[in-house]
């Protein structure tokens, strides 16, 4: 087993009096899809936002490629090669695909953008991910379907030579065929050697693409297991009760008081 590319230990986060994340440990390995599951309010999105630098963590260490790092802003995360595809997509409707993919990191001088080079790179990235559903890279995002938007958002995240991609419920609002496309894309990211974190509510999706499953329960990481070692039912129990058999939280009678 390889060393994790992203290694988080003892991460805590509070919003005022609410302790959202308790001592979270999480490993993300290159070339693997790690599914992050948990019930609503378990802290999945908060954890992703802490990793992405949107929220600052209160305590805890983050090691990236074996070196401790401090992620204070989205820029820090982007410089390390950590990209996030958000649930609400974070694309600007009025810009076209190329402009969205390069937003904030435009090529060329700031006084004369190099449109040609950006357009080529965008097309090559979409092609390397075998994205076939988009007619033109100059289509404004407002004219794309939900699945196509998700595809663009994911392709945007791989354009940057990124090493870890975090996907926040990429299939939540999609139809069957579009979900299929996005899951294929997720698999392809891992095959290209990226560390992929997939947040999802859909157990079928998780079992289809994930190599490992990390379960959050009320802000605690209760299990990190290999997908092949667990069943659907066990994961659902972990999500809803925090334990399943010997996996997960200690039974109350064994708990140290």
């Amino acid at each position: 087993m390889s060393e994790p590319i992203l290694h988080i230990t003892g991460l805590n986060k509070t919003f005022g009096p609410v302790h959202v994340l308790h001592d979270i440990d999480l490993d993300v390995r290159a070339g693997e899809v790690t599914a992050l599951v948990g019930d609503n309010g378990a802290g999945k999105s908060t954890l992703v936002k802490c990793i992405a630098g949107i929220h600052g963590a209160d305590s805890g260490t983050v090691e990236f490629q074996g070196k401790p790092v401090h992620i204070r802003s989205p820029k820090d995360a982007a410089e390390l090669g950590i990209e996030v595809v958000y649930q609400d997509l974070a694309l600007a409707d009025n810009l076209d695909i190329v402009q969205n993919m390069f937003l904030g990191r435009e090529r060329g001088s700031s006084w004369l953008l190099d449109e040609a080079s950006m357009e080529k790179a965008a097309r090559e990235t979409l092609a390397s991910l075998s994205v076939r559903t988009v007619k033109s890279v100059r289509t404004p995002v407002s004219a794309l379907s939900g699945g196509q938007r998700q595809t663009v958002a994911i392709a945007k995240s791989v354009l940057w030579d990124s090493k870890v991609v975090l996907l926040d419920e990429p299939t939540a609002a999609l139809g069957v065929a579009q979900t299929r496309q996005v899951l294929d894309l997720v698999r392809r990211l891992a095959e290209q050697g990226l560390g992929v974190v997939l947040i999802s509510h859909n157990m079928a999706d998780v079992f289809e693409v994930a190599d490992r499953i990390a379960v959050l329960y009320l802000g605690r990481m209760v299990a990190e297991v290999h997908t092949k070692d667990v069943t659907h039912g066990q994961v659902v129990e972990l999500i809803t009760a925090g334990r399943s058999g010997d996996i997960g939280l200690a039974r109350p009678e064994h708990a140290v008081l």
Binding site: P74, K75, L89, A90, A92, L103
Partner: peptide, 11 residues
Amino acid sequence: GNREAARRAGV
């Protein structure tokens, strides 16, 4: 177009 997207993109 999308203020939050711009912020997340580092604008």
